[in-house]
Design a protein around this nucleic acid. Structure first.
Lengths: 209, 209
DNA sequence: CAGTTTTCTGATCATACGTTCAATACTCTG
DNA sequence: CAGAGTATTGAACGTATGATCAGAAAACTG
């Protein structure tokens, strides 16, 4: 193989995941701005040169890390969501398990936020401004699918698909931020969100005769 | 006065606002991470030393900038919101004018996001994790007031005040991010949000006899 | 165990950053 | 218009950063 070990390899996969985990911890503790290669290397107990060796670039490391975080979050939520017997149930599970993920892996969620709102693509486009048609947002795509199928089956009423998906996503993300909400456990918060969006999504009741 | 011109002064207020405006433009164009004093100074057509002279610290500049942005946004929205004749109308105006602000001053909104999600307090606490009981979030406070008064007057139904406020705030913020939504004008997006939260907030219809 | 490849480090480099300071220009005021 | 206070600059400093490289160490292979 080439001297630059950027591509897949044998045992060093473990090293790479170790470095990524150290990156996540560092991002959570001191944030994107101060998460230098030196800080990450110290936390991983290795030299900074080794990080460059495995990921080539600092940007390479960041990209792999956010990829890991998104896949993690997505598989957690999707696994629990697919147990739903109908669209309404799947929407409930989507909301609840999303909040459960935040509560279970808060450092991973913070790391994800740190990258998404700090990093920019080589074209200088912020991650949080990125077009979402690609597969960088599997959860948003799943959410839209649930909503669309619910509309098609008549389970849900009439609303703008994209906007409702964004709104639900925003509500879930907002749970992490504000002080009061953070002090509330995910289950209670999730139950209330379910109540809110259950009404928002359901068909209008038949007009009284 | 002291040789360090950090406090209020005569004509140099203009300089300070000029520097703050340059900071906003820079944050919008290249983001928080790359928005160095040199870049800001270049855009303002002055030296970096002058920034330090007026704001003491880089952190001082950032704090003044975010303060300006929050006040700007708040006064824009609050001014339009108070025209509402009842809580429902005020909620509508709150949502619509918030989106209108984003559409009218996109670079200010981006700058606000860049700071909130990048900067940390001297205690290493991310801004987006800050407790919201203080006056750093005047719009969130207003939103809660609207919802509370609506509940007290019977205009609105039963829901968790804090969570509903967070949800609405998240929905508004989310408008800026996703590709599809960004390509939609604020008025249409706002109208749909109003529709969604009108239902979420209104009292349950009387049960059929 | 000899040879080859992969993994890893310490040292080094250029660069960019925020901050400081002495010196200069400007703007008032009396 | 002199003199005092204010505004502004260029240069310099110390530091931290990401990247590079030659070479050591380890792991693997035959």
């Amino acid at each position: 193989m080439s001297s630059r070990g950027e591509e897949q390899s044998f045992i060093s996969d473990a090293r790479r995941t170790q470095i990524i985990e150290a990156t996540i911890v560092t991002l959570n503790e001191i944030g994107f701005v101060r998460a230098s290669l030196a800080q990450i290397a110290k936390r991983a107990g290795i030299s900074t040169a080794l990080i460059s060796y495995h990921f080539g670039d600092r940007m390479g490391l960041i990209n792999r890390t956010i990829q890991t975080l998104i896949e993690d979050n997505a598989s957690f939520v999707l696994e629990r969501t697919k147990a739903g017997r109908n669209c309404r149930e799947r929407l409930h599970l989507f909301i609840i398990s999303s909040l459960e993920y935040q509560e279970t892996y808060p450092e991973r969620f913070v790391a994800l936020v740190e990258i998404v709102f700090n990093a920019r693509t080589p074209d200088n486009i912020p991650y949080y401004m990125l077009n979402d048609d690609n597969d960088a947002e599997p959860l948003l795509l799943e959410l839209r699918t649930i909503l669309r199928e619910g509309q098609e089956s008549g389970e849900f009423g009439d609303f703008d698909l994209m906007i409702m998906a964004n709104t639900i996503q925003g509500a879930i993300g907002e749970h992490a931020a504000p002080g009061v909400a953070t002090r509330m456990d995910a289950a209670s918060y999730g139950a209330e969100l379910v109540r809110i969006f259950d009404r928002a999504v359901s068909p209008l009741p038949a007009r009284q005769p």
